[in-house]
Structure formats: C-alpha cells, structure tokens
Amino acid sequence: MMHLECSNITYSYPGTDHKVLDALTCTLSRPGFHSIFGPSGVGKSSFARLLADLNRHTFLGKIEFTEIQTVLYSYNLERLPGWSSAGAHLDKVVAKEKEALKQELINIFELSPLLGSRFHQLSMGQQNRINLIRYLLQTFDLLILDESLANVDEKLRQAIILTIKRIFPQKMFLYISHNLMEVSTFCDEILVFGGGSTGKSYGTIQGQNCCSSEAVDRKKVDETMLEIMNAF
C-alpha cells in the first residue's frame, strides 16, 4: 500500500541556524488527495521541496516512501517557456499515449480556447491551470500541489480537485493551500503545521474527503475546520 512516513525531520537552510522543520513526524497512509495546512512561514513548501528532492537536501530524521517512486512538486508562479504557445508546449511535454487524458483535462480545466496563447498572455489563474495540467500528465506517484490552484475561481477549483480525485484514485497528492474550507471538504489526511510562540507543532487531522459537491456535509466540514483551527 502506498505510504509516506516521516520521523523526526529537522531541517535548516544551509548557512542558517533557523529550523524550518523541527522534529516533524507524520504519516500519509494511503493514496488520495491529502493536504498540508498552516500559516505562512511554517515550512510547508520547504517540506514539500524536501520530499521532492531528498538527495539535494541535508536533514535530520527519516523519510520513508513505500510504493512511491516518483515525486513531483509543482508550485504557483511557475512559468512555461515563452517561445511557443501553451498548447504547443503541452504537445511537447506530454507523451502521445496520454493524448486522450490531455484532451479530457483541457476540457475540464476550461483551457481549450487558451491553447493558442503564449503563457504571458494568460491570467494568473489560467497560467496555474496550464501548469497543473502538464504535471498531471507526467508519470508520478506523489504530486505536490503548492498553491497550484491560486487565483483560480472557486467553482472551477472545486471541479479540478474533484476531477483529480476521480481520475487519479491510485495516486497520492499533497495539496498546499490556505483555503481552510476547501482543504477540510475535499482532502483526506490533513497535515497541520503550526508555528506559534512556543515553537513548531505538527498534527494530522482527518478531512471530509468529499468526492462530489453534492456529498458535502456542512456540519462535518465545520467540525473539521474547527479541529484544524484548534490544532494551531
């Protein structure tokens, strides 16, 4: 069973004494759409980058991947090269056998009319959608989405998340977002990173993991949200 386990991870950027991660222990025990939630500056993105490229970082502790061979990390503000259109770029970086999936995602992500445009001509939300699509069409086991849906309107964001959950049930996703409602509603396991005056704190909360918008139980979502807020 796909599994990620971190024990006592302590990490500082080279040349600094500040601990970005301090004795972080957490587990993601199955495939699904998981999340890291917490205020800015608590080390969410640093942890994500660490997972994506273990060999480039020096840290204390242990990270164990089970049935996870390929980890990809995508983030908000990534850009596509400007010398060709978004569509031409997708054609170039997506394998032929994924053509059908590509078309499906393009339609759901509402990108068809934008494929002829250069990346810089798109809005920030459109740019993030194009960027996310190309990652989804690569080979991966764990894909980290670091605010990858920033600036996308709420309705479309929800549709995208539900699509990802539907199409990739066997993959693991780690969604970094500041949208408490969204995380509580659609995510499975939620790693909550706290960074109060007493030091770093980490915990895992079970989200509602809804797979359709109709299945949302508002009361339970509120409870989850409250639980997350109390975890800081």
């Binding site: 994506a52 490229d53 990809l72 990390y73 995508s74 983030y75 503000l77 990534e78 850009r79 596509l80 090269p81 400007g82 010398w83 970086v93 960027n131 190309r134 990652y135 690569q138």
Partner: peptide
C-alpha cells in the same frame, strides 16, 4: 530561470540545449 526550469528538472526532461535556450530566451 528557476520558475521555468523546475518542471523540466523535476520531470527529468532537462537537456543542456533546453537549459541554454531557456536562459537565452529569458
């Protein structure tokens, strides 16, 4: 040019010609 090169590096698609092209273009 990290925000462009990241994708190619992490997906293993980066080649020196592409790296040069990105940096020259930018």
């Amino acid at each position: 040019v990290k925000d462009i090169e990241h994708f190619y590096i992490i997906t293993g698609k980066m080649r020196w010609q592409l790296e040069v092209k990105i940096r020259a273009f930018e």
